[in-house]
Write a protein that binds this DNA or RNA. Sequence first.
DNA 1: CTAAACTTTCAATAGTTATTGAAAGTTTTT
DNA 2: AAAAACTTTCAATAACTATTGAAAGTTTAG
Lengths: 167, 167
Amino acid sequence: MKYTEAKEELIQAWGNLGYSWGLNKTMAQIHALLMISPKPLSTEDIMDELSISRGNANMNIRALLDWGIISRISIAGERKEYFKSEKDIWALARQVAKERRKRELEPILKVLREVNDVQADGTEEAKEFKKVVKELKNFAEKSDGLLETFIKAEESWFWNNLLKLMK
Amino acid sequence: MKYTEAKEELIQAWGNLGYSWGLNKTMAQIHALLMISPKPLSTEDIMDELSISRGNANMNIRALLDWGIISRISIAGERKEYFKSEKDIWALARQVAKERRKRELEPILKVLREVNDVQADGTEEAKEFKKVVKELKNFAEKSDGLLETFIKAEESWFWNNLLKLMK
DNA sequence: CTAAACTTTCAATAGTTATTGAAAGTTTTT
DNA sequence: AAAAACTTTCAATAACTATTGAAAGTTTAG
């Protein structure tokens, strides 16, 4: 397989995966592009490589900055801004986990805690409801704790411990 | 907080969470509804409770069956089909993990393996590319292994081991 | 200060995904 | 066999999300 072909395919595939990580397609593609690029790219470079408009490029670059998975850098003697991605996959995964925890897990935990205080009038529905909420809450809290460990962990420590489980 | 209000809020919140687990909003809401219901519900019940159309209900029920997280049951002496959800959150999480692994992780692994054989012509781009792909592949394979362990694990065993890590 | 170089915004629109509901299909009952 | 009870499909459309590109905004250089 030739390089340009492989590059194309990886960017495509990463676009899909990124999507399921909570990014959108273009965001993930820009990220893939920056990740495999040995040097930082400008907005214009990105527009060209992915054939997207200026506005689209700008918006998604900003979103990536917002997620904290790419960074802005300036090159001496140049006006343009360049961007580079975090290349350490582990750091990337941690960052994504952190954002998703904030955006997804925290809100549901809040609701579960609220809803946990529901008045149990005598009905069977209400009783079942309480039971399910309690379990969900327990599960969500465990997951939250685990995520936190993941986010704070050192790569090698984490995998070493985890790999022990996997045998 | 009153029961009906709490129920409403939980279904809403679960809808959002489900969405980020790869289900769609209605799918997740139907699931939430079945999860808190002490007895199985018919398509009609679901339509009423969530105020959705027959077609929509039918499609999403089928998708949930497809994911293997709800099941069809019949009640003696009744024509209608009823549905109930798996109530064990752990089992649910495993099922979701299994489906997502198939739908998301496997495709990217395939691409990474393919793309790993790229011809390294001398360019710096190609060199960087190979390096990144190698790391991604390594990460994805580790994640795959971990997911597999999760999918096959017993609840208590898994959490007990994991909780040790979390301290 | 003004022009040039670059970035950001945003209304218009294209593209995608979800939803409806009536019609067609299936199974069961009489 | 016909009617009743129920399920599934699917074309139309509504709702939502992504993208464009021109205009407005900002920063730097001369």
